[in-house]
Amino acid sequence: MKRYHLSIQILMGVILTLLVACGGTDSQVVSDTAEQVSAKENDQSSENVREEATMQKKKQGTYADPIIKDEDVSVSPKRLQIPAIDVDTDIENVGLLDNGQMGVPEQVENVGWFEPGAKPGARGSSVLAGHVDSKTGPAVFYNLQKLKKGDEIFVTGESGERLTFVVTGKDVFPQYEAPVEDIFGYTARRSLKLITCTGEFIRSKGGHQDRLVVYTELKQSES
């Protein structure tokens, strides 16, 4: 069970006392009405009391400003554009493979979005993976390592809304030593991570030995 400390801290106490004092007569009147618990009988009188007791409260007024709240700006990604490395491509949804790996796009020129994870623009880790090369030559993320802090990335959702992300950094990890839980896990940031292969290609050891992760974050309040 919870601990209860009902002692009001001195600072608060002082402030509160001031407040109660400043509304002294008002609270007296209100407490008088509270004694009479019948709401119906006192409808009229409590109405009158309330007119006095409340501050500048106007009955049934309107508060014009719109409600301020956390807006969901996330999108189901369909298109990725990275002008800095001349990428403009479609996004496929991918999931988990049987071996526990994140899936990859079927087309080497496409990029795969890890669909069980966060949507781009939502808080958390949204992950896009693209091939660095095909069997015969460069693929969509061949130049991903050239991205640098501040470069912009555009993700377009299915209804055409476009989000801008900004590169904040990058890391290279040996394939089996990447902090997968950090890369895919929740964060309060609206992060988008781009992954591709890098490092030496050793076919007998599963191909490319390293993974490149480029970190980006949503650029706030565009529009």
């Binding site: 071996n99 526990g100 091939h131 660095v132 090369d133 030559g137 896990g185 992954i195």
Partner: peptide, 13 residues
């Protein structure tokens, strides 16, 4: 949650 990173290269470069 994946346990491994994706295989995003086929060695063509």
């Amino acid at each position: 949650m994946p346990s491994e990173m994706p295989d995003t290269g086929m060695g063509g470069t």
